[in-house]
Design a protein around this nucleic acid. Structure first.
Lengths: 336, 336
DNA sequence: TTGCGAAATGACAACGTTGTCATTTTGTTA
DNA sequence: TAACAAAATGACAACGTTGTCATTTCGCAA
């Protein structure tokens, strides 16, 4: 009964119980060394006895910061989980908690709307996990006092971004071919309007041109295996085609099926590399070598970037996280 | 230059700019109908011009609540993702944000430690996502003013829990067998000390006894396919064995392999059901019927339970989320 | 003992909101 | 036009911390 009088125990209650001033209790929490041991013990005992827990709101109000980073999830699935895991670990390491909101199914969320909702919450900075285009991407301006990092494959005019290095990944794959004696690399693209596809194509083109090779006309795909199959049928008839880079694994699989149907062997007749390293999930004993992006690292970098920018929210940086080539046996070394 | 004078725009600044009192600005935000339209417009204009955003800390301090639910992740993987998705959606629907902390790799986290960390954060209640035993499970007491829900398969003495209905799932599987003419059901358990396994065994036993069937001695497994294989070899020699319930899919697969090696067919000679419905991920064309638990629903229920308990944190409830039988073709209907 | 500098502690304001209650303004009726 | 109730607005305190600065206490040398 008597213990029900007050809802929450405040520092003042502790101070009274311990026979010290409010400020001394505050000091016990924030700068324990400046308090005499005997006093400190008395305060600790009082805190224990009363079940004191510091009030987050009051503390944040006074300090002007929260110790939380906001995370906006536009989608929660697949690789995103690894990314969140990376964010969460990096946050824990730096003493930050995460505040999360999620786009609801069916809801159309813009960056402005997400930002508005986030800035009502206890956050010092925020991370947008954006795997899809949104309407206001280019026009969006982040709150001036809230460091904002966007995880996306596009470059943003004012916000810091963290991206997979799609271009570099494509370059890496091409060099992998060329270093193994291939004289040229054909490319099967994803949907024309896709930024990922464009980046990957750009990297492919650059890699060839660097070596003084004239890139052949890219084959237009649409991300699906069927379009890869069509491309594969065309490529099977090209005598100089020994290496194919497909903008994703599904199309790479389509290419491989077509080559097989045309009586060609992968990798003996034609070598193939895909992107995303996801074929092994659906195809047992998959041989496809693939460029995989490190989603977890993406999360870690994004969080670090936010924390680094807390003091200067308007700073802007662009971080590229390199991909990794997952080697299987779909590429033949022609030098052997 | 002139705009850099103040760091944050407060209601007071808005009030001055709009030529009204502080309180009127507050009213425009919280009870717009009580403010004359002309005044409201003036205030809105001032807010817009100054870029005002309400201060979360001050607001929470005054209101005594945060509008955030804490989520403690002990592990982030597999089914947990669906669960978090459920929590996040349910939270969004009820106007709550989530504050997340995560056990770091290698760190040994107890409920008490997790609770201590959470209660320093802006949360009105919390959810522990506990898929593993922790040392202080039974002795843990949640803060009296913070509604706490634990997602776990065990019952907790003082906290509300949300669990998969493992026992019910096992019962359901048994009844599925019995309703199809099977006279008995053999059981292959998981590790002896596992609570999941114990619950599943309990449900199996109860289902048989309800029908007046004497449960045969359960076969001891260890969750892995190998132990299922050993059990399968034993079961193959029992003429009365037409139905096997294995405590997980891996062991069920082991059982099926053993039966096949002994010249028996699934389901023609022996029917099998597993748990978790995960075999299809690794085995193409899997025929195994399996009891699957609805992780997403678990998250939704947990969040709803927290929100429902905000006013009475010490209330305690136990929610069971039923499993679903995913039918494939590993069970033969003997009545046919 | 006294005096003194350093260490420990305390009084009070401030952070930016919202609740309470008082005051002013508005619109309506006599 | 006066009187009045209702609507709109305002003054001020309070939420529970931390920073600033003043005060007290301590330990040690004279």
């Amino acid at each position: 009964m008597a213990t029900m009088d007050k809802k929450n125990v405040s520092m003042n209650d502790v101070a009274i119980a311990a026979g010290v001033s409010l400020k001394t209790v505050s000091r016990v929490i924030n700068e324990p060394d400046s308090v005499r041991e005997s006093t400190r013990d008395r305060v600790h005992a009082a805190m224990e006895a009363l079940g004191f827990r510091a009030n987050f709101a009051a503390r944040s109000l006074k300090l002007g910061r929260y110790g939380c980073i906001g995370v906006v999830l536009f989608h929660l699935s697949g690789g995103n989980v690894d990314m969140i895991d990376g964010i969460a670990d990096a946050a824990a390491e730096r003493g930050f908690a995460l505040t999360m909101i999620k786009k609801r199914a069916g809801e159309k969320m813009t960056l402005a709307e997400a930002s508005r909702r986030m800035s009502q919450l206890p956050v010092d900075g925020m991370i947008f996990n954006l795997r899809q285009m949104v309407d206001d991407f280019d026009t969006f301006e982040a709150p001036k006092d809230l460091k904002t990092v966007i995880i996306t494959s596009m470059e943003h005019p004012t916000c810091s971004t963290v991206s997979d290095d799609q271009e570099g990944g494509a370059r890496m794959a091409c060099e992998y071919f060329l270093n193994r004696g291939h004289k040229n690399v054909y490319f099967v693209s994803g949907k024309k309007e896709s930024l990922s596809s464009q980046c990957r194509m750009k990297g492919w083109r650059a890699a060839l041109e660097t070596r003084g090779i004239e890139p052949p006309a890219p084959l237009q795909g649409d991300w699906n295996a069927d379009s890869g199959y069509v491309a594969g049928l065309v490529l099977a008839d090209k005598p100089d085609c020994t290496a194919v880079l497909a903008a994703n694994d599904c199309m790479a699989n389509g290419v491989m099926m077509a080559l097989r149907d045309k009586g060609l062997s992968v990798p003996d007749d034609v070598s193939v590399i895909g992107f995303d390293d996801e074929l092994y999930k659906t195809i047992p004993n998959s041989i496809l070598t693939s460029v995989k992006f490190r989603h977890r690292e993406l999360g870690v970098r994004a969080l670090n970037e936010v924390v680094a920018g807390l003091e200067a929210p308007s700073s802007r940086s662009r971080t590229l996280v390199s991909g990794v080539l997952v080697e299987r046996s779909s590429v033949k070394d022609l030098r052997a």
